[in-house]
């Protein structure tokens, strides 16, 4: 039996939910469906729910180009896999739609909670890329101006942080942001917003948090050396 392809009209366009199976067959089933109903699909904005498929950038980029051949624009990819969400975000695709998914319950925003989810991103985030995660976010690499990190927990950047960062994005004032060079264009923690401090000649590791209703940044030092 070929993999299932479910289509549903939503406010943002067409929501296409893909079933289980090897990706090549799933993709073939999707394209066959589109070819069959070409006039129905023509010009549509597509939201693809890929469920549990784990897709890399080349695979997803290829599918997007194939869809372009049918005059379809892929604008969002929904997935259960953080890897696929990352891929979609790198390609500039949305990973959330208005209604959200039923099972998209936010992870606990309490950073102390045992088992709070975290994601590790091991590359430089360039302008236009966005990491949004219902948990903690760790970046190994730089965060360039124009890139965004939105985390409901803490954010740690092992590199230069020069983009926009929002920790505790679901309203947690206890969240912190750490970076080797903390020079974000804008830093938000919970409801608080602060602008970039003037950049220093010699950057040093710092941690930003809320103290008495203000965002403050303190240089990081080894415990016991303060």
């Amino acid at each position: 039996m070929p993999p299932t392809v479910q289509i549903k009209g939503i406010r943002e366009g067409l929501l296409v939910t893909l079933g289980e199976g090897p990706w090549s067959e799933v993709q073939a089933a999707l394209l066959a469906e589109i070819a069959e109903k070409a006039s129905f699909f023509n010009g549509a904005r597509l939201v693809l729910d890929v469920q549990n498929h784990i897709l890399n950038a080349a695979t997803l980029g290829k599918l997007r180009d194939l869809l372009a051949d049918y005059n379809l624009s892929l604008w969002a990819v929904l997935s259960h896999s953080p890897t696929t969400e990352q891929t979609a975000q790198t390609l500039g695709l949305a990973t959330r739609i208005h209604q959200g998914r039923a099972d998209d319950a936010p992870a606990s925003s309490d950073p102390e909670t045992e088992g709070a989810e975290a994601v590790l991103v091991r590359r430089t985030l360039r302008s236009g890329s966005r990491v949004e995660y219902p948990g903690h976010v760790t970046i190994i690499g730089d965060v360039n101006p124009g890139a965004e990190i939105i985390a409901s927990g803490d954010v740690v950047v092992w590199g230069r942080l020069r983009g926009l960062v929002h920790a505790g994005a679901e309203g947690d004032p206890e969240a912190v942001v750490c970076a080797l060079d903390l020079s974000p264009t804008q830093l938000r923690i919970g409801e608080h917003i602060s602008l970039a401090p003037p950049s220093r000649k010699t950057p040093r590791p710092e941690m930003a948090f809320i103290r008495e209703g203000q965002v403050v940044a303190e240089p990081w030092s080894l415990p016991g050396q303060e």
Binding site: A57, G61, T90, G92, L125, R126, S127, G128, S129, G146
Partner: peptide
């Protein structure tokens, strides 16, 4: 920078 990111993604 944005373009380089897109090219890396592709």
């Amino acid at each position: 920078d944005r373009i380089i990111g897109l090219i890396e993604a592709e």
